[in-house]
Amino acid sequence: MSVIVNELRASYAFIERNVNIVKRYWAWELVWLVYTVANSLSISFIGVGAGQVSGGSGIDSQYLVLYLAIGTIVWRYLSVIFYWVTDVVGLERWEGTIEYTLMAPITRFMHMLGQTAFAVLYSLVHTGVVLVVTVLFFDLTMANANLFGFLVLLIAGSLSFIGISIVGSILPLLFPERGSQMTHLIIAGLLLVSGVYYPVSVLPGWLQVFSYLSPATYVLDGARLALLEGAPTLSLWPFIWPLLVMGALSIPAGLQAFHWAERYAKRTGKLHRNG
């Protein structure tokens, strides 16, 4: 019992530490939030201006704005989780605390649990602000939207994204100088193939294959059905189960990959080097 309590305490250490970091960097957090909101609004404005740009009159701009807004909000939510989880090593390399944390008697599972719990909470707050501002700014009607189903999809999507993020977090362990930057490759690839701002059907056939492997595709397709069409939660199951399967596979795979990377770093002396 005391072992479990100690592990939970250790896991909570990461949540508390990250909350303290966010508080100390409050000005930066504010800047980041304003940037995110402005970025999301500007993408949604594409929907407003699409008719004028194309010269067509048959475009339902309200639908298009909501379509793009769902893309930005879901993508913001998933990518913020990705960056916080992949930063589990990068942040500590930057501060020089990596050796101290990795010599603490805590399992990597509980280590990641603390970091991902904070990532999900942080992302929910961040995304919530963007969602509220977008709805108010464009006066979007959400009367028919299935918000509960949308939330279920986000949570299921979090699991699979956490697994991918843990895999991404090994890059700064393997490549101390540029590992953090290399994680952008993963997120850029997912952004391209997941249909964040367009249906994946417009992609070339060979790229569409990759869209089936991206959890973001299922979250986005399901979220659009839930919010645009008001699809009931049960009918979202075809989007939810692939996310649960991906999470069930990618989280253990990510933890195992991290274990191997940590052993490699300890064998080659790469923990000590600051990137």
Binding site: V5, A10, Y12, A13, E16, R17
Partner: peptide, 8 residues
Amino acid sequence: LYGARLYG
């Protein structure tokens, strides 16, 4: 406090 929590 962070360090202490890591050690339970």
